[in-house]
C-alpha cells in the first residue's frame, strides 16, 4: 500500500464530490457544479471521471477502465494502475466481474447489472454549448426548459444531409425534463442509457457532475417522421462474427484493405473464447 490517502483525494474533497453526486442523482440530467481538483494527469485525460471514481470506490470494489471500449489502451491502463496504487483495489477487464467501471466514450456491450456503477469521462457536459457559448444563457435555457434550439439543430441536419447527422454525443432528454449530453458515446449506445446500473458523469475541466439513476427514462431527441436510429457499421465483426456490436474500422494496408472489429475488447475476446469466429480469425490449430 502506498502513502496516499485512500483513493488519492483528501477526505474534504471526496465529501464535496459525494455531495455533488447525490444532488445529481436527485435531479437526473442536471449538471451540478463542483470544485474540480487538479489531478496528476492533464485535463482531457479523464480527470472528471477519475474524481468521481475516487469518491465512489470502496476497498471491496473491483474496477474496470475502458477507453473507446478497449481495456488495453494508454488511458485505460494508466487509470487502472493509478487506482491499483492509490486505492489498492482489485481490477479486472471483465465487465461482469467489475463493480465500478470507468469509461471513455463507450457503454460496454454486456448488459450492466444493478450492482454496478458506470462512471463516464465527459469533455463538454453542456449539450447546448456549441449552439450557445455563454454559460449564463445555457443555464437559463435549462431553467426555462427552452430546448427549441436543439431541435432546430437536428432539423438543420435533416435539411442539409437528409438525416440527423449527429453520430456521437447524441442529445437525450432525461425523465422528461433536462436535455443531457451522454458524453461522446456513439448513438448506437444511447438505448443502453436506460439501465439497472447507476450512471455518473464527471467533467473535470468544466467542473460538472451529473447522473442517471437506475431505470430512469432516457429518450434520444428525434422527430416523428425522422425517428432516432442507433446505427452502426453494416458489417459483422471480423474476429468474433458478432453482428449486433459497435465496430471499429481498422485500416490494415495501403491498398484499401480494412477490417471491422468490436470496439468492446472484452466482449469480443469472450465471444472468441466461446468459439465464435469471424472472417479474419486465425485458422484453428489442430489440438
Amino acid at each position: 500500500m502506498s502513502d496516499y490517502n485512500f483513493a488519492y483525494l483528501d477526505e474534504q474533497t471526496k465529501r464535496m464530490i459525494r455531495r455533488a453526486i447525490l444532488k445529481g442523482i436527485a435531479v437526473p440530467g442536471y449538471q451540478v457544479p463542483f470544485a474540480s481538483r487538479e489531478m496528476p494527469m492533464p485535463y482531457g485525460w479523464g480527470t472528471g471521471g477519475v474524481q468521481v471514481t475516487a469518491a465512489c470506490l470502496t476497498p471491496e470494489d473491483t474496477l474496470k477502465v475502458i477507453d473507446q471500449g478497449a481495456d488495453d489502451t494508454t488511458n485505460a491502463v494508466s487509470i487502472r494502475k493509478f487506482f491499483e496504487k492509490t486505492a489498492d483495489v482489485a481490477t479486472t477487464e471483465h465487465t461482469d466481474k467489475a463493480s465500478v467501471i470507468q469509461t471513455r466514450h463507450r457503454i460496454p456491450e454486456a448488459p450492466l447489472t444493478s450492482d454496478q456503477i458506470l462512471v463516464y469521462q465527459v469533455p463538454i457536459p453542456e449539450p447546448l454549448r456549441f449552439l450557445e457559448p455563454r454559460e449564463t444563457e445555457t443555464r437559463k435555457m435549462h431553467a426555462l426548459e427552452e430546448y427549441g434550439l436543439m431541435h432546430v439543430k437536428l432539423y438543420e441536419d435533416i435539411a442539409r444531409h437528409g438525416n440527423i447527422a449527429t453520430a456521437y454525443a447524441y442529445p437525450v432528454k432525461v425523465e422528461g425534463r433536462y436535455v443531457m449530453d451522454p458524453s461522446p458515446i456513439p448513438k448506437f449506445d444511447n438505448p443502453k442509457l436506460e439501465s439497472p446500473a447507476i450512471q455518473l458523469f464527471g467533467a473535470g475541466r468544466e467542473q460538472r457532475i451529473y447522473a442517471i439513476p437506475p431505470h430512469t427514462k432516457v429518450v434520444s431527441l428525434d422527430f416523428e417522421d425522422y425517428p432516432f436510429d442507433p446505427s452502426k457499421a453494416d458489417h459483422p465483426c471480423d474476429l468474433c462474427g458478432a453482428s449486433h456490436t459497435y465496430l471499429d474500422e481498422v485500416i490494415t494496408d495501403d491498398a484499401g484493405g480494412r477490417m471491422f472489429v468490436c470496439s468492446d475488447t472484452d466482449y469480443c475476446a469472450s465471444r472468441q473464447a466461446q468459439g465464435h469466429r469471424g472472417r479474419l480469425s486465425p485458422k484453428e490449430t489442430a489440438a
Binding site: F6, K14, R18, A55, C56, L57, P59, E60, S114, P213
Partner: peptide, 19 residues
C-alpha cells in the same frame, strides 16, 4: 478508519438515494 468507512457509508447513501 475515516477514509475507508466513509467510502462504504457513501456507497450505502448513494444506493439508498439512487433506489
Amino acid at each position: 478508519n475515516p477514509a475507508q468507512d466513509s467510502a462504504r457509508a457513501f456507497r450505502a447513501a448513494l444506493s439508498a438515494l439512487a433506489r
